[in-house]
Design a protein around this nucleic acid. Sequence first.
DNA 1: TAGATTGTTAATCGATTAACAATC
DNA 2: TAGATTGTTAATCGATTAACAATC
Lengths: 219, 219
Amino acid sequence: MEKKVSGSVINRLPRYYRHLTDLCDSGIERISSKELSRRMGVTASQIRQDLNCFGGFGQQGYGYNVEFLRTEIANILGLNRGYTAVMVGAGHMGRTFATNTKFESRGFKLIGIFDSDPAVVGTEIHGIKVSAYSEIGEFIKANKPKMAILTIPKDATKKVAEELIGMGITAFMNFSYTELAEKEGIIVENVHLSDSLMRLSYKISDKDDTADKERGVEL
Amino acid sequence: MEKKVSGSVINRLPRYYRHLTDLCDSGIERISSKELSRRMGVTASQIRQDLNCFGGFGQQGYGYNVEFLRTEIANILGLNRGYTAVMVGAGHMGRTFATNTKFESRGFKLIGIFDSDPAVVGTEIHGIKVSAYSEIGEFIKANKPKMAILTIPKDATKKVAEELIGMGITAFMNFSYTELAEKEGIIVENVHLSDSLMRLSYKISDKDDTADKERGVEL
DNA sequence: TAGATTGTTAATCGATTAACAATC
DNA sequence: TAGATTGTTAATCGATTAACAATC
């Protein structure tokens, strides 16, 4: 009975993976938690604690083998499991995400794109022909994708998600500015670019106010 | 000397704002922390604690006035300060983000888009004509934007960011799959869609493994 | 007034950091 | 072997939750 790994640790895993990939690309073979901590701006303690949630990947007196550790983290993230995904919504966002994302190296294979707009059905995105949304049920039954990427407008999101859950989809990446209520057994990752913008606005405001205060300006 | 508001609280602010906007749109006038907590899936305690970092916006026995609270959070986030932004990179991602994002209601006004590819310079995105990247220095000197959105390839990011910092930009929204090292006084918000995909992959893997284990499958 | 619900303090819980024995 | 660095336990810190007096 292993203890559940905390969300904070999981959130950091992709970042470790990214840094290790960079190290691999630079031809660096071994790294200590201390040196990695310096590069990433976190504590060495945290790195060792995080990794030891999953096992002892290092060696005393040596550190970590970069390529080995990278592979282990890929395994932990499940990047080698070949999960399949469909995309609903072939608008700007869908096109951009489908085209720019290296799905294969992030754990997924994009196998179908669907839209209800006849104007885009039949067009091709990144080598995949866009199908009519009305055909998605049959497609899912035949191909059993694990995940659906929703690049559709806010108002359509809830309805589409429920339909897809009914068809057997259990994980979603949601780009619309609404939240999919997390149901039992359904996995959701929301991408809210607006939220990032607002956080940035907060940080700028906060910095400006602090600067004003230091100059003695009344707020 | 106020205590600094923690990152966890700041990260939740856009979500409060979103929910309050929805409540406003549904014509709901007042809400208690208890009812809001039910809708958002957090504790009422947390909501009250979070809000009280910034002031007492409620009334005992009544709860919170939705519209008032929404306005207050908008002020806290700085959404009404009219910060200006430029975008560098008029590729797919730039076009999509510029077109789909309601900048004005998220605290920013997009006032310029730049690219070094002559093929896109001169084209129009969301009412803004794309200018040559070589002209950005002059533009920044004249218009003093606060923030730059980087929708450019990984390899160009570091160099461009440094140039822009030299020109006076102090905040970045970075879409490329690399990290801008946070320098003193520079604010960075990284958008790494690949990381979201990997987190999703982890969660699916984890769920699959747990299900296997419950069925008694050896891993 | 009585009931409801806040603002705020105190208690708990979890995550991060520090320390160090184990060991390569 | 001596030096380096891990894995892991203990200490600290911060964030979340619970409780309740204040008060609308």
